[in-house]
């Protein structure tokens, strides 16, 4: 079923965050705690779902020359909606996410899906695409947040883990980059992705004499 495929591709295979490397700023900034990761992910999913549906509906109405301003207005509308909702019902999360909630507007994942998918496809596939991508993003943020919270603060979802001695470097941005790199490597391993030839071992100037490259000098 192709609808099912549109939904699942965003989870791992084309994960916007870990494979597409989009939306890095919120990924590094808000994932010091697992809860914040989930909150940010779900807020983005809501915006992504809404903007994908609306943009897909309006895809024949919006003139090509002004499509970017139109997309941004639509996305910003949904961001305003979700930020009011969060402010009203979960003020703690609203405070924790801070300015990054409003910055969802310029999150490349959302504009990317609008540009790549929603403006070319019908409503239902676009909605499923948005939902899948959003959940993939949420998953990635939750994973990052969990690792960083457990290692860096010695707790998980706010629950203290008594035997963990916190390693505070994981809460800092350096630790964030480190965890992100490890998770990306892991996901690429699972998805069976090889680095492009240009930056892989085969593209190295020393490839012809290197032992670790196939076809190189094996002496």
């Amino acid at each position: 079923m192709s609808y099912w495929k549109e939904f699942t591709k965003g989870l791992i295979k084309e994960n916007p965050n870990l494979v597409g490397l989009l939306g890095m700023c919120p990924t590094l900034a808000v994932t010091t705690q697992a809860v914040n990761g989930i909150g940010m992910g779900l807020a983005t999913t809501f915006v992504l779902l809404g903007s994908n549906i609306v943009i897909s509906l309006l895809r024949n109405v919006i003139p090509k020359s002004v499509k970017l301003p139109c997309y941004i207005v639509i996305i910003a509308g949904f961001v305003t909606l979700i930020s009011f909702l969060l402010h009203g019902y979960v003020p703690d999360l609203y405070d924790a996410l801070g300015t990054f909630l409003n910055l969802i507007t310029v999150n490349c994942i959302i504009l990317g899906r609008a540009e790549m998918f929603a403006c070319k496809n019908k409503v239902i596939p676009s909605a499923l695409d948005g939902l899948g991508m959003g959940l993939g993003f949420t998953l990635a943020l939750f994973l990052m947040g969990s690792v960083r919270e457990i290692m860096g603060s010695g707790s998980w979802m706010g629950i203290e883990i008594s035997f963990m001695h916190p390693v505070s470097v994981f809460v800092m941005s350096a630790g964030g980059f480190f965890v992100l790199g490890c998770i990306i490597a892991l996901v690429n391993k699972i998805a069976g992705k090889k680095p492009p030839q240009k930056i892989g071992c085969a593209g190295c100037p020393n490839a012809s004499v290197c032992k670790s490259v196939k076809g190189g000098n094996e002496e």
């Binding site: 390693v167 505070s168 470097v169 994981f170 350096a174």
Partner: peptide, 8 residues
């Protein structure tokens, strides 16, 4: 440095 910022 990692130890310093982790276990100050």
């Amino acid at each position: 440095i990692v130890l310093m910022v982790s276990f100050t």
